[in-house]
Design a protein around this nucleic acid. Sequence first.
DNA 1: TATTGTTATACTCTATAACTATA
DNA 2: TATAGTTATAGAGTATAACAATA
Lengths: 150, 150
Amino acid sequence: MSEKDDFDLRIFLPYLLNQAAEEASLSFQQVYKSRYGMLRTEWRVLFHLGIYGELTAKEIGTRAKMHKTKISRAVQKLAERRFLMRVRDATDRRSEKLSLTPQGRAAYEDLRTVAARHDAALTGRFSAADVERLREMLVALAEPSQASKG
Amino acid sequence: MSEKDDFDLRIFLPYLLNQAAEEASLSFQQVYKSRYGMLRTEWRVLFHLGIYGELTAKEIGTRAKMHKTKISRAVQKLAERRFLMRVRDATDRRSEKLSLTPQGRAAYEDLRTVAARHDAALTGRFSAADVERLREMLVALAEPSQASKG
DNA sequence: TATTGTTATACTCTATAACTATA
DNA sequence: TATAGTTATAGAGTATAACAATA
């Protein structure tokens, strides 16, 4: 994009990424919200426990790049609704081992299926090679502190 | 992505798009916020008027796919800060012709330059062909009601 | 009756500081 | 002193209903 009179907002990358992200999230959001009353932070924590098994809040934070306050509140909600269990760590009593209850695992497995189908629906219109390259580029763009000090 | 035990959250498209969008927006957000005290909705309206000239709120809504309440509030803020002028439409007194003041145009031109440089910094690491394909795919993903009922 | 734009309200999401309890 | 996690608070972003003025 040049800097003069032909600026095209419609292809400005931050704008485009935001629009695509909003649209792509919509139908999945409706599912985790309507079926389980979850928020974004909550399904993310649920998925981390579903995929990796027992984790502490700290470990989830590292893997998900989520701030500890977000995790704290998401864990609280998931515990209230009996999707996860908290067990005080015997060797370091500041932290807790978090793991899914059977109910939490069932929710995770349901949502994992929905997510996989949704991902397939979103990417199905593109070639496999294009999708692979798209994911690579998005991973690179998601990485912090690339060239970005405009 | 398959639906069984190898679900990989890190490449789940809605998740990836969200992370990339957040990261890509960061530095530009800091500029329009710190220099002009603007919010997201406000720079978007500013850009529409800068690019297309005189528009009504309705026309901005159509082009930007923004709800009228967002536009109403963004226009109010931009008018307070003397970035735009409102002139009642003589032929339809329900709407107003919106246009940038000299101060608004100066802000737009400054931010347009920042945006173009930021876009170049974000995409500079990829080949021109990859960037072109990336924008095409994001435009397609941003389009509402594709296959999405997971 | 329908449309343009405004106001009220609530919910979601994010960011930061200050705090606790443990180490 | 530092770390794991919590609580409080505010700001940013989004969504919807109800409304006034005009067509």
